[in-house]
């Protein structure tokens, strides 16, 4: 691939260098098809599910997608910097258990009488520390991200148990009251935080030189290194960003559930699905912030619509599985460097 250096560094994100016309058409079809599927599902629910279109319900969906959404946004940073090869590329399997650990730190901190400020600082530190461990393992020890973050996932799960003894730690604070509330009436604050975090990351990733370089590092690491980019720092930064996102998501989760609860690890699959599904919403089939946000909302809408139609929630898992299969199949067949 002689042209990747130039294309990744010099061109704006999401603009593909002309390659084969057939592949381009196929990618356009996948993207158009995905958007069409999104719109079709939305329209079907709007027509069939009572109350789906009400402002309150849609606001609810955004709020319900907040915790997984922020986790998946963090995962997106890692996928962008590491490349979206599911096995050897960037992935952070520790996000869900990192959230569990951070939630435990925040809830026990508040329980110990710390104010919101101190508890938040400790929570952010915990999230960043886990990110740093991942960064060291992946960047400097050269361990496959899949394995490195799997190990970190287990460390987080263990530390969470140390803090909580596998029980629910109830928590309350002025910040949690604000986060679990609705402002203005009917709009969950959690949903606003999701949109805020997505907007911030979208600006950083898609409108700054740093974001463009992150894509360059993930697109072709050797080329990026040859072009003089500090590749290691960028990859490390993506894991730190993912760790911080887990910390932010943990505060949202504590607000939603009035404390830290067990079973955070269950969220891992949803976070991975959301980040991977997001690629179908971009022109080059790469992870993007708007793509991940759309995919988080899409899954939220599926779950919500199924419940409104009184279809068993058991189906949602199956549908998610089929979606991930379709997306991985489509993207691996159509990725520029495939075959």
């Amino acid at each position: 691939m002689p042209d990747t250096v130039q294309s990744h560094i010099a061109l704006p994100v999401d603009v593909a260098v002309p390659r084969s016309r057939a592949a381009d058409t196929a990618r356009t079809l996948v993207r158009a098809g995905s958007l069409l599927a999104f719109v079709a599902v939305f329209a079907a629910f709007a027509a069939a599910a009572p109350g789906f279109l009400s402002a309150g319900n849609l606001a609810n969906v955004v709020g319900q997608s907040a915790v997984i959404g922020v986790l998946a946004l963090g995962m997106t940073l890692v996928v962008v910097a590491g490349g979206n090869d599911v096995v050897r590329g960037g992935i952070d399997l520790s996000v869900a258990n990192n959230l569990g650990l951070c939630a435990a730190v925040y809830a026990t901190g508040l329980g110990a009488g710390w104010g919101d400020g101190a508890a938040l600082a400790a929570t952010a530190l915990a999230g960043l520390l886990v990110g740093a461990v991942n960064a060291v393992s992946v960047v400097w020890l050269g361990i496959l991200p899949l394995l490195a973050t799997l190990a970190a996932m287990n460390v987080c799960a263990g530390l969470e148990l140390v803090l909580t003894h596998n029980t629910v730690v109830a928590a309350s604070s002025p910040l949690l009251d604000v986060l679990s509330g609705e402002y203005p009436a009917g709009v969950p604050v959690l949903g606003e935080v999701l949109l805020g975090v997505a907007a911030l990351l979208a600006v950083v990733l898609h409108l700054t030189p740093a974001g463009l370089r992150l894509y360059a590092v993930g697109g072709h690491r050797e080329a990026a290194r040859a072009a003089g980019l500090p590749v290691a720092s960028y990859v490390a930064a993506s894991y730190l960003g993912s760790g911080l996102c887990a910390a932010v998501a943990s505060v949202l989760s504590v607000a939603l559930l009035s404390g830290s609860t067990t079973g955070s690890g269950d969220m891992l699959l949803a976070a991975v699905v959301t980040a991977l599904l997001g690629v179908v919403f971009s022109r080059r089939l790469v992870a993007t912030i708007p793509g991940t946000l759309l995919s988080a909302l899409f899954i939220g809408i599926l779950i919500n619509g199924f419940q409104l139609l009184n279809i068993s929630s058991y189906w949602v898992n199956g549908v998610q599985g089929v979606l991930i299969l379709l997306v991985v199949a489509a993207t691996s067949m159509l990725r520029p460097n495939a075959g």
Binding site: G51, N57, N60, G63, Q307
Partner: peptide
């Protein structure tokens, strides 16, 4: 589920 249920 409870949130959505309330809306229903």
């Amino acid at each position: 589920q409870i949130q959505t249920l309330i809306a229903q």
